[in-house]
Design a protein around this nucleic acid. Structure first.
Lengths: 130, 130
DNA sequence: CCTTGCCTTGACGTCGGCGTCAACGCATAC
DNA sequence: GTATGCGTTGACGCCGACGTCAAGGCAAGG
């Protein structure tokens, strides 16, 4: 399988595959004419990368999962190093979500306060009106 | 007040102030020798920018708040355009937090599944042991 | 006179994950 | 012969908010 076919089957681009190879994530064998050659295992590895990417993992963080698959394990997360990445990402997500929730509440309060101030300006001294 | 003093009083850098001027956010008057000159109002505007930046607002999104202050309003969020930015950011945050929460749960499930698989491999057929 | 310290403009570097273009080769189909 | 369609490498562009360095000016103090 050449680069174009692999890209299409994985729903990505040839540029992406060359980039992964340059980063050492997904090295390719070469045909006599210099063309990159891939097999079904490469497709599995590529899909592992893409899945993790969709979850927000950085490329570097996918390495343990790839190593795990290459070592013959049934899944990319069958190895301790992969689990460590999971835990790290989980902590990262919890922290981020927490901070975003704080910001969200502060913005909501600012908005509520500003809306109230605008309402008072539009209809002042109306606290007792129904 | 010159650029260095303003930067220090706002807890930022001179580079940042020049950047804001280049973007048209915080223009400066000039002294005879070409040095930028700022006053207390500029400090207020700058603090408004920094506060919003800390909340994750983009620089472009701070413009309505600055215009509001320049128009003489008591707060940057005393104007409808600012409230619109608040609401937009709020929706953005809710969306982002929701998607991150989804990812978080999926990662957590993956982790749980992988840990269970690893546990079974280490101590197989132990469902009945206490 | 010379150093120190503030200021000026201009321009390149950073980070991640590619997109996009250039210029080229090789092979098959017409 | 040539048009089409695959592949190759190299290199610059993008996004946002600056950091950092270069080269220079100008004023006060020793």
């Amino acid at each position: 399988m050449r680069i174009g076919e692999l890209a299409e089957r994985a729903g990505t681009s040839t540029r992406t595959l060359r980039y992964y190879e340059a980063r050492g994530l997904l090295p390719a064998r070469r045909a006599d004419n210099g063309h990159r050659t891939y097999d079904e295992d490469d497709l599995r590895l590529l899909r592992e990368i893409r899945t993790l990417q969709d979850f927000g993992f950085e490329l570097e963080e996918t390495r343990p999962f790839l190593a795990c698959l290459r070592a013959g394990h049934p899944a990319g997360d069958s190895c301790p190093a992969s689990l460590a990445v999971y835990r790290h990402k989980l902590a990262e997500l919890d922290d981020l979500i927490g901070r975003l929730a704080d910001v969200r509440d502060q913005v909501a309060r600012q908005l509520a306060g500003a809306e109230e101030a605008a309402g008072e300006a539009a209809a002042p001294r109306c606290e007792m009106t129904p």
